[in-house]
Nucleic acid binder design. Structure first.
Lengths: 331, 331
DNA sequence: ACTTGACACGAAACTGGTTTCGTAATATAA
DNA sequence: TTATATTACGAAACCAGTTTCGTGTCAAGT
């Protein structure tokens, strides 16, 4: 358990610890033979500098905090977190993951705690009621922060996210082109910024196609399987002519599939589905978690290292057609 | 950016910093009025002690490392990581997540790095070729470590995982009871310890039911959607009488669903599915990520705080029937 | 009145590094 | 031969806390 430290090295070589430190940092005011002997002993004893002592000096921890609004159970967020972790790992940073569990109060507590831990930066997926003032205070104190996925107006930090309007536009247009006319929209909850974007794209596709648009085909829903099933059942009851549905998230698709199975229907014969970010057989809008994770970690590194960073990266998603959609005959 | 420190507090109150420190730690050799004034100023200035200075003193970081063999994209692991994070957060620990990306070499590097960061403990999901010797060295040096999910023989640390034999037994028995006779088994890769356990349960169900068992119904497969689709197609070709399939993981199910859609078949009419850990409409063996995460964090806390810890926690999974299975008539 | 003890506080050392500055030894220039 | 520069190193201060130990003050005991 006892780690060897710089003093041990110095003592064994009969030199000062300052010399050892300088040797390790390859300073010019240390002789070559001294450097060589230090390096050799370091190798032998498997010495590595204590991160905390260094952090205390540099006021840098080589630690980045990832603070998410939700629970990481979503495959998309899990992949974003993973990509960020790997990217930052390559630059010598470790990541600390924390969840605010959709609570603005917890979010604050976590950020404060991270600040005392001298985090070098934060990647924040804001929750619904993020305290913009508080976050901006942190930023103006010089802490480096980027926000991801959930755009919150007024935060003075770079944002990296998906162009949901385009995503939903692509999905809806595809279904319209395939002959569908009654396309349901299982939209996200009203508190999510993305919900409005989805609706914008969905509607635009109808308008562009010159097909009559009905509000009754849209229903709001939490990102939750059980709620999604209920809302789908309601939507189906009210729109028995519906031949396709566009879901705002993976959890919703699962609820819908459950409802479809219960009704004895089948996909895609009776109903086509396009959702967001599914990796299964469902046709979906691919949110490009890898790109978002990369852009977010790059933006944060740029901020930390004092480079210029654009304030918005909107990543266009991609429509991936799998086996949950079919063409139907025009009436 | 400049945080206030214990010296600032001391100066403003005209007392020594040692007194401030003792007041904050509620030591008995500080007067009550002094304590009160310190606490008040601390509150006012929003002071919080520097974690690194403390870590340097205590040789404890209040940090726990989670090192996973895989990529976190699996919903089960994502939830395990999340539960561990939340549990430990409640005890004042933050978690650092890292992935060894299935490489024993990376695994070592990460552990070494974590050791210099004075991690108070590790939660390790070992990769296929974990260096048992190395891990045991770390443990015998006094570092606290628990292993999760992937049981590796010879590691002197508590293990928390799923009873896969029982899981696959339950799945297979259910399908047999439902009248299925030709039940495919899309097994995990040979390197995974769990694969043998799955096979054990699968076979035992056949034996217990007195139904003839065929090796041809089992095929090994990576935890990868594309590979799963190929292997399923092969299995289907060779066993056209197959009416059900038991998959070792979620990624496999997605591959299978893709194959089924391509063949123009439907679930559960043509083929029933039971997999592991799915949350969608697929009937599945629920691995109880929450229980595993809780048990793992509790075991680690016990280790860190010097309590006795049993060496194995095997958590029995649960069969959850959803909409991907049907009863068939006996021939 | 003197001793003893409890109490409250501060100086200094310590955790493991980095950095500044001073200086001795050697090399080069005048 | 002396003045100056260069090189190589060490002592000490510093980061922000904790802990040990010493000391002064006051009250109680004899």
């Amino acid at each position: 358990m006892k780690e060897i430290n710089i003093n041990d090295i110095a003592r064994k070589l009969g030199i000062a610890k300052s010399t050892v430190s300088k040797a390790l940092n390859n300073r010019s005011d240390v002789g070559e033979k001294t450097k060589a002997s230090v390096r050799q002993l370091v190798e032998e004893l498997n010495y590595a500098p204590n991160h905390f002592a260094q952090a205390l000096n540099f006021r840098k921890s080589k630690l980045v905090g990832i603070i998410m609004h939700d629970e990481l159970r979503d495959e998309f967020f899990a992949q974003v977190v993973w990509v960020i972790t790997v990217e930052l790992q390559q630059h010598g940073y470790a990541t600390i993951f924390a969840s605010s569990q959709k609570s603005a109060i917890q979010e604050k507590t976590i950020i404060r705690d991270h600040v005392n831990r001298f985090m070098d930066g934060f990647i924040l997926v804001p929750c619904a009621e993020t305290d913009v003032q508080f976050v901006n205070d942190i930023i103006s104190q010089g802490y480096k922060l980027v926000t991801v996925d959930n755009y919150v107006k007024g935060i003075n930090a770079p944002f990296i996210g998906t162009d949901f309007a385009t995503g939903s536009y692509l999905a809806t247009k595809y279904l319209l082109d395939a002959g569908h006319r009654q396309i349901g929209h299982l939209a996200g909850p009203e508190w999510a910024a993305s919900t409005k974007e989805h609706a914008k794209g969905y509607r635009k596709a109808y308008l562009d196609a010159g097909v009559e648009f009905s509000k009754a085909l849209t229903i709001n829903c939490e990102y939750d399987e059980a709620d999604a099933k209920n809302k789908f059942m309601k939507l189906w009851e009210q729109n028995p002519e519906m031949t396709a549905i566009h879901c705002a998230g993976l959890a919703m698709t699962n609820g819908v599939l459950s409802g479809i199975a219960e009704l004895g229907l089948s996909v895609p014969n009776d109903i086509s589905i396009i959702d967001y970010g599914s990796t299964s057989f469902i046709s979906s809008i691919n949110q490009k978690a890898a790109e978002i994770g990369q852009a977010a970690s790059q933006a944060l590194l740029d901020l930390i290292e004092g480079r210029e960073v654009p304030c918005k990266f909107i990543i266009a998603p991609e429509l991936v057609i799998r086996n949950s959609t079919r063409h139907i005959n025009q009436p």
